[in-house]
């Protein structure tokens, strides 16, 4: 990796100041994607601003049916949180199945969401649960947050503070893993909410998105048979050495059906 200036600010304000001062600064959370990318010299920030020292980005709080998870909360902490397990067991399960145990001890929810890897797990949950992304500049609706492959609605100098989820009536996340990387080839997060069924799909396309056709079908009839009838847009699906577009389209339906079974 190329060398860089390292900063470890103690507050969100200082972090943003450091970024603004840098010629090409980058925030780093757990570093689980950022550091391998830098090691392969695919990124070369002039300044790395480590968010690991900012206490206000940590912690899980519950208010009524809403659970708010600090951006620097690790996947391991989310998975182990009694509050998350109680209010959002599907999210705890999702977090507990990202990467491997050592990765979960470093990787964070904020880092994962801000990076928006097309095969990351959290984006599916954010979309399906209609989460709110609380940032240093305000709030971003989960539906609006993921704008393209590795792209989000965050401004350059905007930092995720926390993510708020509202407890759904039921939810499940089903992931079909890439046998090599263990990222999602397809991940489907299904939530039964007061506004009906919401589905977040990751891995299948360049950016996580809502499964509108599936939602429509399931809102009419919440059954695996209803999923069968949905025609998936194969031409929109990713294709790579691990899975063709057609197979991904098929897996979206299978994972959705498994989520339906789990939510019954």
């Amino acid at each position: 990796m190329y060398d860089f200036n390292y900063h470890k600010p103690g507050s969100v304000d200082d972090a943003i100041k450091a970024l603004r001062k840098a010629s090409d600064g980058k925030f780093v959370a757990g570093g689980m994607t950022m550091l391998p990318t830098m090691k392969h010299r695919l990124a070369s920030p002039s300044d790395v601003i480590d968010l690991g020292g900012i206490k206000e980005l940590l912690g899980i709080t519950v208010k009524g049916d809403t659970i708010t998870i600090g951006a620097m909360t690790t996947h391991a902490a989310v998975a182990a949180s009694k509050d998350v397990q109680r209010l959002l067991p599907a999210l705890a399960k999702l977090a507990g199945n990202i990467g491997d145990p050592a990765v979960r001890n470093r990787g964070t929810i904020g880092g994962s969401i801000a990076n928006n890897d097309p095969a990351a797990d959290y984006p599916a949950a954010v979309i399906a649960l209609g989460a709110t992304i609380n940032t240093s500049k305000g709030e971003i609706d989960g539906d609006e947050f993921f704008t393209g492959m590795f792209e989000t609605a965050l401004a350059e100098d905007e930092l995720i503070i926390s993510v708020s989820f509202t407890k759904p009536k039921a939810a499940a996340y089903m992931k079909f893993e890439n046998p090599a990387s263990r990222y999602a080839i397809v991940g489907v997060f299904l939530a039964k909410t007061n506004d009906g069924v919401r589905i977040g799909i990751t891995g299948a396309t360049p950016c996580a998105h809502r499964g509108m056709r599936l939602e429509e079908a399931l809102n009419k009839e919440f059954s695996t048979a209803a999923v069968d009838k949905v025609i998936m847009p194969v031409d929109k699906m990713n294709a790579d050495i691990h899975a063709s577009a057609e197979y991904r389209a098929h897996l979206v339906k299978v994972m959705t059906q498994r989520a339906v079974e789990a939510c019954k």
Binding site: N178, P179, A180, S181, I241, H242
Partner: peptide, 11 residues
């Protein structure tokens, strides 16, 4: 080589 790391070559 499309399978040049453990991310793409499944051990």
């Amino acid at each position: 080589l499309l399978t040049a790391s453990f991310m793409d070559y499944a051990m």
